[in-house]
Design a binder for these strands. Structure first.
Lengths: 110, 110
DNA sequence: ATACGGTGTAGCCAAATAGCTAATTAGCGA
DNA sequence: TCGCTAATTAGCTATTTGGCTACACCGTAT
């Protein structure tokens, strides 16, 4: 029932989740690897990850018995940037990443 | 207890509050004027306004027996923009401001 | 002084959130 | 198959959030 912007901003409302996104900026990480960076328990971080996943801000991928998470930076930039440029267009600029039909799937960064 | 980024993103998490900010984009509005735009009751909107005020996203000013709210777009752009440019710097550009600590005013597209 | 229009506060309740521990699922290797 | 590691799900509790109604507050003007 909640729109996607609400999902995204709610996800960003928690410091731990923002930190996770920041950590993922440099590449994918396993769940346990992420857990190790915080004081919270595994299940707690797992929950945070599922919030981020539902918001579409991260994707997961299996590697053996580990699960690797990676940032979906485009979605973050587009959704938040869209809002920002509606409310205060003078202060922010979205770099032309718009629809661009995403020709190549994976290659955002590496 | 909660940092200011959390306050801001939490404030943005609610559709009504985002809409209020958007409405304030074109200039200040009285509380009652804002209330008139939604289906919620006065007290409910008043509460939303206080959340926005605590987050520093709006300021209030008295005019006779009305209270006029206005957007603090700079704070919105700076806080959210800061986060965005940390996590996905490739996709977003903060336009100048930044109290001149940052060397380059960043390129603009307009 | 009193009344009134415009707002915010108090108090209540239902629902959602965040944390934990314990239990469960999924994959890999012997 | 069994055992081990990795991660999520279940279930619980405490806290916060969002909505309402009723009430109190503050200026203005009669």
């Amino acid at each position: 029932m909640t729109d996607s912007a609400s999902d995204i901003f709610s996800a960003l409302a928690h410091p731990t989740r923002r930190q996770i996104l920041q950590d993922l900026k440099d590449g994918e990480m396993a769940a346990g690897e992420i857990v190790a960076r915080f004081n919270a328990t595994g299940p707690t971080i797992s929950r945070h990850l599922s919030v981020l996943r539902q918001a579409g801000l991260v994707t997961e991928r299996r590697d053996a018995n580990r699960i690797l998470y990676s940032l979906v930076g485009e979605r973050l930039a587009l959704s938040v940037g869209d809002f920002l440029s509606t409310v205060c267009p003078e202060q922010i600029v979205l770099r032309e990443v718009r629809k661009r039909s995403s020709s190549r799937p994976t290659e955002i960064q590496a």
